[in-house]
Computed example of a mutant assay.
Amino acid sequence: MQKDQLFTRRRVILASAAALGAAGTAGVVLVGGDEEPVRTTAPEPAPVAGPQARQAPKPSAFRLRPLTGYGPPRAAPRKLKVRKEPILSISGRGRHMMLTFDDGPNPHYTPHILDTLARYNVRAMFFVCGECVVDNKELLARMADEGHVVGNHTWTHPLLTTLNRKEIRSEMERTSDVIEDAYGERPQWFRAPYGAWNRATFQLGAEMGMEPMAWTVDSRDWTTPGTDIIVDRIESGAAPGVVVLSHDAGGDRSQSVRAIREYLPYLIDSGYHLTVPHRRVG
């Protein structure tokens, strides 16, 4: 399925996502589309913000090994405690925020977003779809080299609450495998498409060593409301701990590309420290 088809499909699916997503278990959070995010206190402390990138790191030899096919066997991921709700914000002293981008990578839009982030020495999170990674592995290699964090956003961007457990596992596991091949490490974060969570997604994510990450501010850029509106939503929603949701694929993202060129310098000039979570080791 082509990613640009998701723009049309998203409008249909979001209408039923609320009812389906709520059918999982108590504590399930459904946020996305035209709905306002639901703020929930996570069972565990939110991830502590990591340092803002000051310069692009050198290419990782560890990342290159899997690409050549001579890397060590994949180690089993560390299992995590199963959460009942996704993480919606980041913790840490000061004016920290985090930018996240979903549905990519896309060769027409992702490079421009990466260029803007590099210009201001800022790192971000990219929740990628496996089917998009297959033909754009070089973009994940660039994300690794420039210090960005890559998360799992499933293989085909389905509404997970309509799938059985085996299907959900396949969507998540295949994506983690291709991320490791292209990025050099297995993802430590997962985001459910459309913000539709249920018990199986939390359990399987924890089994695969991934924490569930949602968002605080939805730019709703997927509706292509205009660059100025996207900028205003992000700037007006700025606050310590905020996680911003935007997109670098799934449709025409030219407005998103133009918007980050405006709101990123504004956030920095306003004293915000754009950052990513600390990487778990071991």
Rank of each mutant, 00 (worst) to 15 (best):
R74D: 15
R74Y: 11
R74M: 15
A75H: 11
A75S: 13
A76C: 05
A76Q: 13
A76Y: 01
P77G: 07
R78A: 09
R78I: 07
R78F: 03
R78E: 08
L80Y: 04
K81N: 12
K81V: 14
V82K: 09
V82S: 02
R83K: 15
K84T: 14
K84W: 05
K84Q: 09
E85N: 12
P86L: 04
I87N: 00
S89R: 11
I90M: 13
I90S: 08
I90N: 07
I90H: 06
S91N: 08
S91W: 04
S91T: 14
S91G: 15
G92P: 03
G92D: 07
G92T: 08
R93M: 08
R93T: 13
G94V: 09
G94E: 10
R95M: 09
M97P: 03
M98H: 02
T100R: 01
T100A: 02
D102M: 02
P105S: 07
N106P: 09
N106F: 07
N106S: 15
N106D: 15
N106I: 06
H108K: 12
T110H: 03
P111L: 03
P111T: 06
H112S: 13
H112P: 11
I113W: 07
I113Y: 09
I113A: 10
L114K: 05
L114A: 10
D115Y: 11
D115I: 09
T116E: 09
T116Q: 03
L117K: 11
L117D: 02
L117G: 11
L117P: 08
A118L: 06
R119H: 06
Y120W: 14
N121D: 11
N121H: 14
V122Y: 03
A124T: 13
A124H: 08
M125A: 10
M125P: 02
M125Q: 12
F127V: 05
V128Q: 06
C129Q: 09
G130H: 01
G130T: 01
E131H: 13
E131F: 07
E131M: 12
C132F: 07
V133M: 03
V134W: 04
V134H: 07
D135N: 14
D135V: 11
N136E: 06
K137G: 13
L139W: 02
L140P: 00
L140Q: 00
A141Q: 12
R142W: 03
M143K: 05
E146G: 02
E146W: 06
E146D: 12
G147D: 04
H148C: 01
H148S: 01
H148F: 00
V150L: 00
G151F: 05
N152W: 08
H153F: 06
T154R: 07
T154G: 06
T154H: 11
W155F: 15
H157P: 05
H157A: 00
P158N: 08
P158H: 10
L159F: 03
L160T: 09
T161P: 02
T162H: 08
T162Q: 15
T162D: 11
R165G: 01
E167H: 06
I168R: 04
I168N: 02
S170V: 14
E171R: 01
E173K: 15
R174L: 07
R174M: 10
R174I: 00
T175D: 01
T175F: 00
S176K: 09
S176I: 01
D177W: 07
D177P: 01
D177K: 07
D177T: 11
D177M: 08
V178T: 10
I179N: 05
I179F: 08
I179D: 02
I179P: 05
A182M: 07
A182N: 11
Y183P: 09
G184L: 01
G184V: 03
G184I: 01
